[in-house]
Design a protein around this nucleic acid. Structure first.
Lengths: 134, 134
DNA sequence: CTTGACCCCGTACCATGGTACGGATGTTAT
DNA sequence: ATAACATCCGTACCATGGTACGGGGTCAAG
């Protein structure tokens, strides 16, 4: 049981980020303590919260948006594995597309950089390629 | 010589995007015509503008930010090829890092998806992996 | 019983790359 | 000359994922 700062530390994020996730509905905001109607002041977070925060971070690392992560968290509760797999497949396809784009860009740029170094006269091939719309 | 709509079409972007690039200083805003002080109304764009717009689009495809593209455009004028190569190398390194991240995410996710399909009992491996922080 | 550190909450702001609105003015076709 | 349409320009808004601010409350140590 820690405070919000401890939770944030456990998840490797800032306190403000935790609060942001709460606003987004990704993390729940626990009730304040004070067993008898006393409006106690400071919320406490347990292992569930930490697990959830880690979930968010690693799903994010897999490229899911916060909206998609919200859905995954719901699916965690509903155990709809088909839908989870569908989301995973979608994400894989998107990652494949993105990777292909980046590899193409990288290859082209690398080629141009080599060319530019090799031929120090005339217009810069990198700039020229961009001007041709390549 | 076309209007802003023609320029936008030539670059495959919307008119508002052209105007946005102008605001960002990436494209110049030509003087309005009207040779004798008459404040003529409609700006005209030539091949230079089209080339510049294409430049922006293709540099963007290589992952440069608009700020970096602004610098590249300046370098185009100054012919500082060393700096251009430096920017290109930076970009290549960033692309490599990004690609590695995405490939790792893709591989992990793919693995989990297969696993999830293979073992339809117990907790969903995809969800479980995220909860472990993988 | 005060000081200092931390928490709470609403609200505002940031970067990035646009997209939309709307009144005024310009241009073109009929 | 008048309707229809495009351009101009300032300004506001959008999504995404945060980050910062400021006034007030709470809590533990000294």
């Amino acid at each position: 049981m820690t405070t919000i700062a401890g939770l944030a530390r456990a998840g490797g994020v800032g306190v403000e980020t935790v609060r942001y996730y709460q606003r987004r509905g990704l993390l729940e905001t626990p009730d304040k303590p004070g067993g008898g109607g006393v409006s106690g002041g400071i919320r406490r977070y347990g292992k569930t919260a930490i697990r959830r925060l880690r979930f968010i971070r690693s799903a994010q690392a897999a490229g899911f948006t916060l909206d998609q992560i919200a859905e995954l968290l719901d699916l965690d509760a509903s155990e709809d594995r088909l839908r989870v797999r569908a989301l995973a497949r979608e994400r894989i396809a998107a990652l494949d597309a993105k990777i292909a784009d980046l590899v193409a860009a990288r290859t082209a740029l690398k080629h141009l950089a080599v060319e530019c170094q090799a031929s120090p006269t005339g217009p810069c091939p990198i700039i020229a390629a961009f001007e041709r719309g390549t």
